[in-house]
């Protein structure tokens, strides 16, 4: 069941500029000096992050991931929406509707 309503499948999302991003052993890590926080998106999160270089609809992200990974649609939607909401809460991504 999808409980998080902050980010929806029709939202267009993109990365927020000015964040220090690096690849460490296949995992995407970020540093926000302003917030004093270090973020690790992991391997899967890094792949989702890369898809948001340009504004992209959430349902497109889901579609790309479903074509690459063995996962059913509902599980993918739920987990990706939760993850994207966390990124949004931390102001790492923005909505471009």
């Amino acid at each position: 069941m999808i409980t998080n309503q902050k980010i929806s499948l029709s939202n267009k999302l993109s990365q927020v500029e000015g964040i220090i991003v690096s690849d460490m052993g296949g995992e995407k890590v970020m540093l926000s000096i302003a917030k004093g926080k270090y973020f690790n998106l992991g391997e899967m999160g890094g792949e989702i992050w890369d898809l948001m270089k340009e504004a992209i609809e959430v349902k497109q992200i889901i579609s790309v991931l479903e074509s690459i990974y063995q996962v059913d649609q509902e599980e993918c939607e739920e987990q990706v929406l939760t993850f994207l909401s966390q990124l949004f809460d931390q102001e790492l991504i923005k909505i471009n509707d």
Partner: peptide, 15 residues
């Protein structure tokens, strides 16, 4: 052949 799915997670460290 499709890759194995792993749930995406965000790890946050307050520095």
């Amino acid at each position: 052949m499709k890759k194995q799915w792993k749930s995406p997670m965000l790890e946050i460290l307050d520095i």
